[in-house]
């Protein structure tokens, strides 16, 4: 188990370096640079050169990247070009809001999805199954920001039940959580249904039923436990994707999270802030997906065993 986690953690390093390098180089290539706003007419060519040297613009992009990454490890990502505040601190204050929203949506989505997926699988091929499939397809096709706006039209403009934006009370969470949770529940339902269907004809289920295990226990203990892996993957993926794509739903509800911070930063050409936000969010995404992989091994001893037998062998066997 430890070996597995360590291997996976080590693998994280090259991926993170590549991901952040790609983003840094892209953002660095964006038109306009950090010193543009500082240059004024009174400056001589030498002053400008001096400024360039100060911000390492005379050196290669990789030098700047290296320096930037060193800063990242010290929790120093430079400061916003507009507000002058530390990027790391700005991200840190906004982050809990995004996390809250994503986790609540995830909880709502999962609570709807797992029972519904099991229900659909148990009634496979019937009208109930088809209805569930229709529901999930609608959930997958509905843009979450559009659902968010429809909720705003009904609950905020027509009957004025919930506030349209963030105001700190519990009420302002209701609509964004529903809007975010709905599409999540759709894909988790789909995954749950097919995972349960994969195990539903196994002999051990017949055995369990034959010896008189009550049906709910068969479902929870025998079916669900053997179907967990794809479901957990889906849940983890959804969490990672929601956090990374939080910009859209945060834009709908003027939510003070990192997604909106990112949009504002990019729109105001605040490259330092934008780059910091994107790199931190991408890092978070990669780490979350890794955690899902490690959770696997907790759920499924077979995967653990494969890893202690050696990574190579397992990959060859898969091929």
């Amino acid at each position: 188990m430890l070996r597995y986690a360590v291997i996976r953690l080590l693998w994280l390093i090259p991926i993170l370096i590549c991901v952040s390098l790609i983003i840094f180089v892209l953002m660095d290539a964006a038109p306009g640079s950090i010193i543009d706003s500082m240059i004024n007419e009174e400056m001589t060519q030498e002053d400008i050169e001096e400024l360039k040297r100060e911000y390492d613009l005379d050196k290669s992009v990789f030098y700047r990247y290296g320096k930037y990454m060193l800063g990242l490890f010290r929790g120093n990502l430079g400061s916003s070009e507009i507000s002058g505040l530390s990027v790391f601190d700005m991200y840190k204050t906004r982050f809990p809001k995004t996390l809250e929203l994503s986790l609540l949506s995830l909880v709502l989505g999962t609570l709807i999805a797992i029972p519904m997926g099991i229900f659909a699988a148990k009634h496979a091929g019937t009208i109930w199954d088809n209805l569930t499939t229709a529901f999930t397809l609608i959930g997958l096709s509905m843009p979450s920001f559009w659902l968010g706006l429809l909720l705003l039209i009904w609950f905020s403009h027509s009957i004025k039940l919930f506030p349209a934006g963030y105001d700190g009370t519990w009420k302002c969470y209701v609509m964004p959580v529903i809007a975010g949770g709905f599409s999540m529940s759709a894909s988790i339902t789909r995954q749950t249904r097919s995972a349960i269907l994969d195990v539903v004809r196994q002999d051990y289920l017949r055995t369990a039923r034959a010896k008189g295990v009550p049906e709910w226990r068969v479902t929870v203990k025998h079916e669900l436990r053997n179907a967990w892996i794809p479901i957990v993957t889906q849940i983890g993926m959804m969490l990672a994707m929601t956090m990374a794509g939080s910009a859209v739903i945060e834009a709908v509800y003027s939510w003070p999270g990192v997604g909106r911070l990112m949009i504002e930063a990019i729109n105001q050409r605040d490259t330092t802030l934008a780059c910091g936000c994107v790199i931190l969010t991408a890092t978070l995404y990669v780490v979350l997906l890794l955690l899902v992989d490690i959770v696997y091994a907790f759920i499924d001893p077979r995967i653990r065993a494969q890893y202690s037998a050696g990574r190579r062998k397992k990959r060859r066997a898969e091929a």
Binding site: I15, C18, V19, I22, I23, L26, M27, A29, A30, P31, A240, M241, A244, G245, A247, V248, M262, I263, I266, A274, V278, T281, A282, Y285, V286, L289
Partner: peptide
């Protein structure tokens, strides 16, 4: 490993 939404935002920003 790069979330699609972020990559999209970065590419369009650049």
């Amino acid at each position: 490993s790069i979330p699609g939404m972020l990559l999209g935002m970065v590419i369009v920003a650049v």
